[in-house]
Structure formats: C-alpha cells, structure tokens
Design a protein around this nucleic acid. Sequence first.
DNA 1: AATTATTTTTAGTCAAGCCTAATTTTCACC
DNA 2: GGTGAAAATTAGGCTTGACTAAAAATAATT
Lengths: 221, 221
Amino acid sequence: MTTSLTRSEEDHIKAIHGLQQAGTSAFTKDIADRLHTKASSVTDMLKKLAEKGLVKHAPYYGATLTTKGRRQALMLVRKHRLWETFLVQRLGFGWDEVHEVAEQLEHVGSEKLVERLDEYLGRPAFDPHGDPIPDAQGRFPERVTLPLVDCAVGERIRLVAVKDPSDSLLHLLNEKGIGIGLEAEVRARQDFDGSVELRTKQGPVHVVSGRVAEHLLMERR
Amino acid sequence: MTTSLTRSEEDHIKAIHGLQQAGTSAFTKDIADRLHTKASSVTDMLKKLAEKGLVKHAPYYGATLTTKGRRQALMLVRKHRLWETFLVQRLGFGWDEVHEVAEQLEHVGSEKLVERLDEYLGRPAFDPHGDPIPDAQGRFPERVTLPLVDCAVGERIRLVAVKDPSDSLLHLLNEKGIGIGLEAEVRARQDFDGSVELRTKQGPVHVVSGRVAEHLLMERR
DNA sequence: AATTATTTTTAGTCAAGCCTAATTTTCACC
DNA sequence: GGTGAAAATTAGGCTTGACTAAAAATAATT
C-alpha cells in the first residue's frame, strides 16, 4: 500500500531518488537546487519524511530512501514516464516538450488511472527518452546491452552501465565527459586495437581505447 | 489570456459557476458546503478573488463571476469534461467512477495539453454524462431539442430547457419534482389531449398534460 | 415592530512550506 | 593539528488557506 503524500513531499522523494546512486546518499544542497528551494527548507522536509519512515536522514551526511520511500519514488517515476509516453505517442507532443506537463500529471493520485493508462499504452517498457518504466511492483524491465567494443559502425547507442568500474576507469570517463545516459553513434572502429570513435548528439567526438570499450555497456536505440 | 490560479482559487471559481444560475448569485454557505470548508474560509477567498477581478462580491448578498472569472470557470469545465470523456472513452472507466479523478486532472495547467486532448478525442461536443463541452473560446455546442409533446413513444430523452417559463409552470414542475437534467423514457402519449407519460431512470413515473409538454424542451440521448 | 434564527463577516489562531540570518558541523588544505 | 570555506542545521518570520468563536447583518416569525 502506498501512503498519500503532498505535492511537496513527493517532489522531495523524487529528487532524492534521482540524486541517490547505488550506495550514495543525496545531499541537502543538491536536493534544494533540483527543487529550486533553499537548503533550510529541505532540512525541514527531510525531518518530516524521516518521521514518516520514507527517508533515512543522517544529519550532515545526507539522506537515503527507505524501502517504503523507494517504493513511492518508483511509483512516481512510473507515472511520470507513462504520462510522457502518452503525451508523445498519443497526443503528438515533441519529446522535449513533455517534461513540465508530466511533472504535473505524475502527482494525480489514482492507482486505477495508472494501471489503465499502462494497459492503454500497451505496457511500454521504455519511455520516449529511452528510460525504463518500472512495473506496478517497481521492477525495471531487463536491458539488452552489449559492450561498446562489439557495437557495429553506424549504430545509434546509449551508455547504460559500466562493467567492473575501477576508480581509474571512472576517473578517465569523468575526464572525457562520458557518463551514463550518453547518446552517440559509432563512427569508426579499429580492428587493430579495438578502439572506437563515437559522435555524440550534442556534437563532441570521443575516442576510447579497446580496453575501455570492453567496459562500456551500451543499449541500442 | 487566462491567469494562473491556485488549486483553491480554481475550486472556488468552479463552485460559484456551478451554483450561479442565470442572474442569481452564489451564496457563501452553499460554496462552503460544496467545497467541504466553512463559510468564513469562503469569505476570505471571495475577497481575494474580488481583488483579482474574477468575482463580484456583494457582502451578505453572495458572489457572481465577472467576465474574466467566467472564462476561467468555462475552461475548467472544458478540461473536466474532456478528461471525463478520455477516462470513459479511452481508458474504459465507468461513467460513475470518473468524477474524482477528473477533479484532479482538470487542475493540470497547459493550454497545449487541453487542445491536443480535445483533438485526440475528436473534439467531442458532449461528455459521457451528456453534459456539453465548451470549446476553447468558452462557447457551448448547440443543443438539438424538441418539445416533449413531439417526442415519440419509446424515446430516451433528457430535459434541457423550459420554454417561456412562467411562475405557475415552474411551480408545477417543482411540485412534480421535474427539473433540468431529468432523464426519462416516453412510455405513452394520448393523442386526445397530448398528455405524456414518462418513466424516469430513478423509478418514478410522471404524467404531464399537453399544455405542459409543449414547454418542455428535450434532447435525445 | 420586535424578536429569533440563520447567514455572513470579522478577528484571531494554526499548520504547511517556504524564506533569511545566524550558528554549527564537516572537510580540505596548509 | 589548526584554519577557512562550504554545507547543513537551527531559529525565527512570512504567506496561504484552512479553522473557531464572536459580532454583525439579514431574513423569518410572531
């Protein structure tokens, strides 16, 4: 059962979910920035959400979602992405126009509405941005991924995970400005050393060695 | 251009619109009852809306919408009825389950969303309850009506207006419990005097004389 | 016309969510 | 280890939209 939250509570839960990576916690300042509010307001809300059992708040060390909080967050993500799918697929919105409207629609509270919408859209696994849509139990669809080193020239792909991430590898990717969600096209591949040349949507071209390309798990799009 | 209002402001505008008949004004108590709040809260809001130029507030004598307020109200009615149509027609909701959800959806603010939804639904003129949907300019669709006296036996009809309503006629209708929106089926008609027998959905049977039946404008459903 | 009942308004309070300013804590760097 | 910058928290205040209780206005009844 999912408790009924206020608009502001939901916004905070979602922000924490978005900022919190595996293991890491979300910091007050980052949450405030995301919601266009101030740190002090966030502290208030974290206390409130901690009392409700949705968030674990370690003062000065950030916040993480509890199991209960994560379930709420996943249902919000589910609603957001289903509405985005509806707006693009059925109402003909552009993929770049839907965020703000979905932001409002996701707060409409009706289990039945969400289930019916999901069904109506054909239970889509991914939204128009390519992001996965959790099911009613909060499970994400399986990703079909392959290492960048095995991608063919010309394929349009997206980075969805890094295999066995060592500190030095993450540092290298960070240096190059390569992160999860990067969308690109394979421009060239050298058989000699397995190195790959990518052109991103936004313009910059990246060249990564074969050793690196083995670790980058891509998804076709 | 329609100003952006808070949820509570919109709720009040809509309540006033719903209570206010042609000419009449909406009373504080009735607004409070409809919104499940208290009269004093409504007084506060009426002052605020009057300052914004959406409502004309005659203290102790009720409130009426200004032209600006009425435009806002019509857009809310438009959104509400379009969403109800969507829920029933596309998501398979029952006509009796949609009100609460539509109540939330109608507050989502995006002109574009409403226009696209309208288009997607095929610009419907009436919602699943048979209520007319205003267009983007706030105009209601024309009703196709015919006097009850001309309705054939077996027709399923609804009372949408009373032609040339005299006080005595309205009194008679009130006595019989016949009002706008009444849904019924024509069970019999006497050629001798034009009198008509109706059976309503809710059970009771009404018999009205030919003289009365001339004044009752019905719509097929 | 006076009294009573009802409705409306006014006055003062409260919680939710935000804010600013001041204080406390943490962390990075010398 | 001490110091300063950044971040987080606390303290106190404001606005919105609700409330209760009391006062005022209107309507109804005798």
